[in-house]
Design a protein around this nucleic acid. Structure first.
Lengths: 363, 363
DNA sequence: GTGAAAGCGCTAACAG
DNA sequence: CTGTTAGCGCTTTCAC
């Protein structure tokens, strides 16, 4: 047996454990024991161990992750499922993703992203993600109905962020949408704003609905009622913000211009800003504009907004999910949490000012 | 043998091929053949096939990706390695990533992201990514020296975007940095700007250096020379843009204010904008500001910038990489491309205007 | 101290 | 047409 010559593999093949063993003149599992620092390795002679380590170094040995996963039932990879539109980058995703990556990396986890075009249309793809390539799955702002939620696989730990429905057995993390919206609108009202247009997110988004509730409650608590038709549904994208505001302004031509716009999220606010600038309206002198989320867009546009702790949400999600995975593999206690609601806070910006005193009509 | 009863597995285990076979009263490989639609399956009786399909449906069978990968040597997953700073989200990454996801998804590929803190310090981690969990790796704006490049594993196809060095055997995609910078500066000069401060990216970034070259060449071609100390190195982050500009302005107090700032990328430009606004300077009436990249930040801040086709870069990367993977597995020809340079284009914005006529001193 | 054997879930190449 | 066998690379258990 040519056990001495470490035969060079043609490029295209990684060295295997057997290769290392062969090169070191030992069995593959002796190599395995040494390279894993397993307790078995204590019972291997120092000389042999050295030879094995040297051979591994020479051959540039890297354990194959898929083979390892097959036995350990673990890939050390987290999945993050989200909708990513072709047209517009999702800043909300980027913030959460970055938190997941960060906390995941600290726990030795990689992150794989699954992009869905639409939760309802593609819900059937979710079980396919849980085919062993990831150990746990984070659903980012999923919109599933009861039925779809029931069909989620139960052999892979799942966690949702900002979910539309509470899914049994699935931890959910979310910001306090209603309180955040209420605080922002209360602030606007406190500054004297009375005609506050709310460009809301989509009808089917629970978070969007809660922000509307906050908007309404702030008014109610102040003993006020928003003007009629002052809540408009949109899509959580800049393009939607742009189009909906245009449309609304066209429909309300000749009426008094709102004193402020409270957009359902930062992207929509950016879309609104485009429209206002295009119409030559001065922000915030003639009209104030605030968003929701506190993504980087808000910071770059100097937008006043409601901060939700997106990065923190992502970090917590990763940590809780890893704990769930550990628990499933019998390596720790399962997190005894089901639903976490994180607080929001108001963020100042250049787009928020006192309401104008003069009357200004939409044209 | 209790071959008839599909014994319900305790949750926590996915159904295996053997389970399906057992439930259908056939062998695992009969099940495999049917479920893969392999040509072998043509030779299985319709009745058996039905039973197998039914059992699979009942058990909610999903083939295990890691087991499959072990034989097929393919995970259908692309890796994307990048630096992600804790403090600041990388918009450049988001754009490219989104292109990779998009084109990858069309080819049935998932995307796993690997975050490095620093290319040099963590270059040694790269081979570990290529341990079978991904089929090919994209290096996003890597900064490797010759030695580190040599140590890249050769058993996994690798492709770089905007690489610092041309790595043998690694396809590289990049924008035409120099031409883009030159075009922008030529435009500024054409509008009458003469004192154009260039806040460049880091010294060790080839892209940043090329942008400086473009800046200088534009001047040279116009028969002009930039004022002394008008090229300043920075870090490609908003924070760096902020700090470096502050610093520079402090050092040049009492001198004439630049007429324009050409930032090395959009993030830096946003940082500059913060400083200018904080100092009460009007953009673009008193000073123009332009960036580079055309990320979403530019759009939200209405920043004039140089567009590099980041998304397209990502898409091409994914397609070329998949082709390389196919080729490696003997399923197609290898792409015969080594280096692709994509054109840039100028993007208008609200931060670019004619140079002020009045003199204005830094204070 | 070290090696042999079995198995993770799947597929491919054979026999029956 | 169907079942058996072997093996992908690794780990774990158990003899030696």
């Amino acid at each position: 047996m040519n056990s001495s010559s470490a035969k060079p593999r043609k490029p295209g093949h990684a060295a295997t454990l057997a290769d290392v063993g062969r090169a070191a003149g030992v069995s593959a599992m002796a190599a395995s024991a040494v390279l894993n620092g397993a307790r078995t390795s204590a019972r291997i002679s120092d000389e042999t161990r050295e030879r094995i380590l040297e051979a591994a170094r020479q051959l540039n040995y890297r354990p194959n992750a898929t083979a390892r996963a097959l036995t350990s039932r673990r890939m050390n990879t987290l999945g993050l499922a989200t909708t990513l539109k072709r047209e517009e980058l999702n800043q909300y995703f980027l913030e959460v993703f970055s938190g997941v990556m960060e906390a995941g990396a600290e726990l030795g986890q990689n992150t794989t992203v699954f992009a869905l075009e639409d939760w309802h249309r593609q819900a059937a793809r979710i079980p396919a993600f849980c085919d062993g390539r990831i150990d746990g799955l984070i659903l980012l702002a999923p919109q599933l109905d009861e039925q779809e939620a029931q069909r989620l696989p139960d052999h892979t730990p799942i966690l949702s962020i900002h979910s539309n429905v509470l899914i049994p057995g699935v931890i959910n993390l979310e910001p306090d949408d209603e309180a955040g919206a209420q605080a922002m609108v209360t602030r606007l009202l406190g500054m004297g704003h009375r005609r506050i247009l709310h460009l809301a997110g989509p009808e089917h988004s629970l978070g969007a609905r809660r922000r509307v509730q906050g908007y309404l409650r702030a008014h109610a608590l102040a003993g006020l009622a928003p003007p009629p038709d002052y809540v408009v549904d949109g899509e959580f994208t800049a393009d939607s913000g742009r189009r909906r505001l245009e449309q609304w302004l066209d429909q309300h031509r000749g009426e008094e211009l709102p004193q402020a716009i409270f957009a359902g999220n930062d992207s929509m606010a950016i879309g609104c800003l485009d429209v206002l600038v295009a119409r030559g309206l001065q922000v915030p002198q003639q009209i104030s504009l605030v968003g929701f989320d506190d993504t980087q867009l808000a910071r770059s546009a100097r937008l006043a907004t409601v901060r939700q702790p997106l990065r923190d949400l992502g970090q917590r999600a990763a940590r809780l999910l890893v704990a769930s995975v550990d628990a499933k593999l019998g390596e720790g206690p399962a997190p005894d949490i089901t639903n976490v609601v994180l607080p929001t806070e108001l963020v100042d910006g250049a787009t928020l000012g006192a309401p104008r005193s003069a009357s200004l009509l939409i044209r």
